[in-house]
């Protein structure tokens, strides 16, 4: 009796390269965005727009061009002075939102990270892909925001493009650290609300966005120095107004890049750990 011959063709699947794997995760999110961009675009534009209107235009009129205001802003109109900092702030804020609940959902509710890592890509590639996508989306919203600021008359020159890149770096540094944290969160609990209350909100308030940090009491200064948003704001504002000095700027950039590297390594490690058990 002849044995039945079972001939299964070789599978068509193959493992992508490290970068290819990250790219696939970005592509997945892009697919999602193409379907859902309206809702996210509205919220990611509307919030900074409100800030711009309330502080830049409203509060700006109040501050006016009094001698005190001029001393604080170095003589620049308040809106122009504020705009690059708002760019950095909105990047940091959207980074915080994108890196909390959506990450937990990917692990726990929708479990799409489990689906991704069941294929040939690794947990680290999933994590870095998610982070890269956060950056892509942030860059897009930031670019639109620059246009909005320009329409309101808040742009002084081409330096704002460098501000946008500084804002992106700031947002990515924040996103990497919070994404890494989110990968350790098992249940919704209070982890994220505590994070917003005790880290994200103080960071947005004490980073020199609305007023120079030297107006803050002495004891708050250390909080300012550890805030990635302060470092980002200094660079973004310096670039937009052309007031930056080489050494401090390099220092700020070094802090941001350092945080991003640490955050990315943690993301890769913690995603791997969470997805392999």
């Amino acid at each position: 009796m002849a044995a039945p011959t079972v001939s299964v063709a070789r599978s068509t699947g193959r493992a992508p390269t490290a970068l290819g794997g990250v790219g696939r995760v970005v592509e997945h999110h892009w697919r999602w965005y193409r379907r859902n961009w309206r809702a996210t675009a509205v919220s990611s534009i509307l919030q900074p727009l409100l800030f711009l209107l309330a502080f830049g235009v409203g509060f700006g009129a109040l501050v006016g061009s009094g001698p005190q205001a001029a001393a604080a802003t170095g003589g620049t109109p308040y809106l122009v002075w504020l705009a690059p900092a708002l760019l950095a702030m909105s990047a940091a804020q959207s980074a915080a939102f994108d890196s909390t609940y959506p990450i937990l959902s990917g692990f726990k509710w929708q479990r799409i990270y489990l689906a991704m890592s069941a294929g040939p890509i690794t947990g680290a590639q999933v994590g870095l892909g998610v982070l890269t996508w956060t950056g892509v989306k942030m860059f897009g919203s930031g670019a639109v925001y620059v246009v909005v600021i320009a329409i309101f008359g808040g742009v002084q020159g081409p330096g704002i493009v460098v501000s946008l890149l500084a804002a992106l770096l700031t947002g990515l540094a924040v996103a990497s650290l919070i994404t890494a944290f989110a990968a350790t969160v098992e249940n919704e609990g209070n982890a994220f609300s505590a994070l917003f209350r005790f880290v994200v909100i103080p960071m947005t308030l004490f980073s020199g966005t609305f007023f120079p940090v030297d107006r803050l009491p002495e004891w708050v200064q250390p909080v300012v120095w550890v805030s990635p948003l302060w470092h980002g704001t200094e660079v973004a504002r310096g670039a937009a107004l052309g007031t930056w000095r080489l050494l401090p700027t390099l220092g700020h950039l070094a802090v941001l890049v350092g945080l991003l590297v640490v955050g990315s390594v943690l993301v890769a490690r913690l995603f791997t750990r969470r997805l392999a058990r």
Binding site: E27, R111, I112, L114
Partner: peptide
């Protein structure tokens, strides 16, 4: 096929298949 479904609920049926195939380098 895992015990708990982990489809992308916010994508279409077809998109779920297409995007998943892309992970396999197709």
């Amino acid at each position: 096929v895992p015990q708990l479904d982990n489809l992308d609920a916010e994508l279409s049926v077809r998109e779920n298949l297409e995007i998943y195939g892309r992970y396999f380098g197709l």
